[in-house]
Amino acid sequence: MADGMETLATPKVKKRFGVNFNIALILILIALIAVIGTVNPTFVTYNYLMAVVVKNIMEIGLMALPMTLIVITAGIDLSVGSIMIFSAIAGGMAAASMGDGMGVIVTLLVGAGCGLVNGLVIVKLKINALITTLATFFLFRGIAKGITHGDSVYSYDFTTFAGNTDIKGVPLVLIVFIAAAIIFTLLLSKTGFGRSLYALGMNENATRYSGINADRTLIIIYIISGVVCAIAAFFYLGRFTSVKFDVANSMNLKVVTVIVLGGTSILGGVGDMRGTIIAIFIIAVLNSGLTVMDIPIDVQTIIQGTVLIISLIVYSILGERAKKRRVIEVSKEDEPRLVDKAPA
């Protein structure tokens, strides 16, 4: 194990422990699959992995991608679940009265609109992201409940297609997710836009002075988050044939769990998209894997909490050490041997 890690890690030591984290996460993922697969071989059948493990997490996975961007800027969006349900419900109602096309348009517009509201309030009125999205969590879900009077909204042709189509055995939602994951990974790691997000998360004032249009950048990522929630809504509505306002409640915290497990700091400035992507699959395997092992839902909650706590502790220990090391690097610049970085 150690050998593989070293060879993989060497070319990218620049990223400090980031790469090692992701490798550790992958190892955990493999270990989990191996353990659960041994206990119940059904789990590792292609059919189960695709139809259950992957499909059950994809909506949360999709929402976790833009949320990673938001958390890197030291923001948070607690309203993602509510946006998804609100856009799914508004779209479903529009489709029922005005046809599928309107359904799709309304879903996307509602998603983008909710994101815009979050972004404007946070950026223009300078209200803390946690509070804003806590309020809109109630607001969007409340509107969804109000317009339906607490009743269900049903799937229409387009969402049924989205939620149930397999292309050569691969669910459509997985293909969309992979495409989105690639786009978001590139956006974060290879573009100036991505770098400005890290800068905003580390020091917003300094970033503003450096000439980056911070307001616009922040509003854009909240809108992206809203639109991705709307896209997730298509799959969700299609997969369950109907939705009701109450499913949004626990979704926000699940998305936060994924992101934190993936190594993105809730304080901003630190994190990467690959960690989030691997964490999505770890949570997926935990959820569906424990179900297959007949472990009651309650124990699953505990295990998920434990995984979260352990990963937080490890990240916190590593973060402390990294901080200390940075201090050493700076103070002993004349003795480069102490710095354990390979030459660039």
Binding site: V256, I266, L267, D298, T301, I302, G305, I309, L312
Partner: peptide, 27 residues
């Protein structure tokens, strides 16, 4: 303790303990 001794941000630390408390009760 989680928040101060392990320096875990409050929102995620309490999010994690919520899952422990909520999960333990039905057992």
């Amino acid at each position: 303790l989680f928040i101060t001794k392990l320096k875990i941000p409050a929102i995620v630390a309490t999010l994690a303990t919520t899952q422990l408390f909520v999960g333990a009760l039905p057992l």
